[in-house]
């Protein structure tokens, strides 16, 4: 997977950015669009923009490492029922960025990939990405279940747990992941309490003595006035 040309990540940033650009050439236009949709569309200060750009200009992982990350991420979150795999959400791009942003991850991940390749070499005489899917899964199964890992594979478990964490964050912070999760917010709305069916499912109800105190959303636009004792009268 070529991270720079990742169609999916471009798709995501385009949906988000939606900024039209009048640049000289199509290539330039695309470059500018990529930059501005990735950088500076979320309220950055000048210093923050420069910092983001600096990180994006650096390559940390080599091609082999990126390929390994992409394969691992798709084992961690494969497509299910058309919801999209980790690669559909460009999770490898996120991990590539985050290790530059949080250098503490660099050695554990770089070293973890090497650990994985060593384990694959020992077991099958091939690096991880060259193994068959079954072989990959058999290695992953050795390190995917904390508490059940053989002592000799414990470092692999640490690596896999880290990759699982980053894959989950990388996936569920995209549009694809948020749709799968069912998060419904981040949009203007009028909150008027927990839906009745949910209350019922949980055997809950709003305390009766509280009900008159809550905001009457039908009067939210009526200017507030109080009597002298602080009782709201509008």
């Amino acid at each position: 997977m070529d991270r720079r040309e990742s169609l999916k990540s471009m798709l995501i940033t385009t949906i988000v950015g939606g900024v039209g650009f009048q640049a000289c050439t199509p290539e330039e236009a695309e470059k500018v669009q990529q930059l501005t949709t990735k950088v500076g569309t979320y309220g950055r200060t000048e210093a923050e923009k420069i910092y983001d750009q600096k990180l994006m200009a650096i390559d940390f992982f080599n091609e082999h490492e990126l390929n390994t990350i992409a394969v691992l991420c798709d084992i961690i979150l494969p497509d299910f029922d058309g919801k999209g795999a980790a690669s559909d959400a460009a999770v490898a791009d996120f991990i590539e960025f985050i290790v530059k942003d949080m250098p503490r991850y660099q050695t554990p991940i770089r070293g973890g990939i090497m650990w994985l390749d060593s384990a694959s070499n020992k077991a099958y005489g091939k690096v991880f990405v060259k193994c068959s899917q079954d072989q990959q899964i058999s290695i992953v199964d050795r390190i995917a279940y904390p508490g059940k890992t053989a002592a000799a594979d414990r470092q692999g478990e640490m690596f896999f747990s880290l990759m699982r964490n980053l894959t989950l964050t990388g996936y569920y912070t995209t549009q694809i992941g948020i749709q799968d999760l069912g998060y419904k917010g981040n949009t203007p709305n009028i909150w008027d309490g927990v839906p009745d069916d949910v209350l019922k499912d949980h055997g809950m109800e709003y305390p009766k003595e509280w009900m008159p105190k809550f905001v009457d959303q039908s009067k939210r636009d009526v200017k507030a006035e109080w009597d002298e004792d602080g009782n709201l009268i509008t």
Partner: peptide, 12 residues
Amino acid sequence: LKWPWESPRRGA
């Protein structure tokens, strides 16, 4: 009203 993916570090 920005979405998490608008930040390359996802809001970290």
